[in-house]
Each structure stands twice: as C-alpha cells, then as structure tokens.
Design a binder for these strands. Sequence first.
DNA 1: ACAAACCATAGCCAAATGGTTATTGATCGT
DNA 2: ACGATCAATAACCATTTGGCTATGGTTTGT
Lengths: 107, 107
Amino acid sequence: MHAEPTAVLKMLADPTRRALFERLSREGEMTVHALTDPSGVSQPAISKHLGALKHVGLVRGRRDGRETYYRAEPKALAPLIDWISFYSTFWHHRFDRLEALLKRMDP
Amino acid sequence: MHAEPTAVLKMLADPTRRALFERLSREGEMTVHALTDPSGVSQPAISKHLGALKHVGLVRGRRDGRETYYRAEPKALAPLIDWISFYSTFWHHRFDRLEALLKRMDP
DNA sequence: ACAAACCATAGCCAAATGGTTATTGATCGT
DNA sequence: ACGATCAATAACCATTTGGCTATGGTTTGT
C-alpha cells in the first residue's frame, strides 16, 4: 500500500513526456512516428522518453513489423493516486476545495 | 480550468522536497531547524527546497524572530488534482481499478 | 555587550537530464 | 533485389539540479 510515487512523478514532471502520455491516453494506441510528428522534438528523443515511460509501466509497446505501437497504462498511476489519497487525510481539514475536487474525479 | 501541473510535479518529484511537504502536511507548522534535523541534508539545502516549494505556493513561511515557521499549502496541489481529474475521463472506461481507488479517496 | 542560534544567500561542483546527430537493424513496397 | 521507412541505440553536449561549504544578517540569551 501507498508505494513510492517518485518514479511516476519524475516521468510526469517533464512536459514532453507528459504530453506523450496525455496523447496516448486521449487517442489510444499510436506509433512512434505519429507521436514524433507534432511533438517538436526528434524521433530518438521520443523513443527515449517512451523507453523511460515504459520502464515505470506508464506505457506499453507492441511491435508490429517495422512499427511500434504504444499505449498508455493508467494503472501505473496508482502510486500517485495512493499518495494523494493517503495525504488527503491531513489536507482535508484545511483544504476546502479538496473534497469537491475528489468528488469530481469520481462522478 | 486545469492549469499547468508541471511546476507542482517537478516539486514533488524530488524525494527530499516531497518529504518536507509530507512532514509539514502531517505535523503542521514547523521551523527550518526542526525540518533540517532528521532530513539528512544541510540546512541551506532545506532552505533552498523550502524556497522552491514556496515559489509554487506549496508552502508558506511565517517569520517569527530569528525562526521561520513553514506550513503546507495543499491548495497549491489543485493543478495536479485537476490534471488527474481531467484525464480520469479518458481512463475511466479502460482502468477498472481506478474507480475503486477513487472511491477509497472519498469514502 | 557579545556570543550563540537561526535562517537565507552566494558560490561552487558533480551528476542527472533532455536534447541533438549519426548509425544500425529490421521490415516494407516496388 | 533494393531503396525507403521506422524505431532503437550510441555518442555527445549544454543546461539544470541537488547537494555542499562559507558567509552574512537578525535575533536571542546571558
């Protein structure tokens, strides 16, 4: 219970990397090529980021011929959600909006 | 709505810094000295981290004589919670465990 | 008055980070 | 068969980061 969120936080803290995760979350499975296209950075940079995300389980890669399709793995956010959940106890009494925000997450 | 979570994520991604925020969340207002004590790093390092946390609004400092009391400001987590909340829409239909986790956050 | 305590700042340094170009390996289309 | 495409890796580079020591500025206690 409530595992180390450091690795997940590090991954999401970089805007380029978070954009990859967001795009895969929104649009589903995509190739490296499609992800590189509008990213503003080179294909090797994207591959490296995807490798890092994969390493902490935030994405999964499926090789198909010469292409690799990546998909988001939101399960890997569990440590982060656990962390927020755990500390929400301490925040609750002085963060009025928290309750509303948490409700919004589970409508 | 759903502001940039990058700054907040960067702050929490460092273990030393997150430990400060956690400690202030658990134990309430504390001096720099008290925070430095069991941290394993020097007082200037702690002060620098507190300055960074303060800069993004995650803590607030109150000077009292020669001591400075810091407190956590969980309100500043709003961008992060908004981000998770926003993407939960996309995850919800393919992340079964999320629902359970979110329920655990708001029992 | 003055030494000690508390905190912030300055200056420095090693390591980590995020990017690049070049290259390689594999697969596809013609 | 072979040139083109896709992705990963290698090698390199600049910047950022997180730590340190040294110092300075206040405030406190004696």
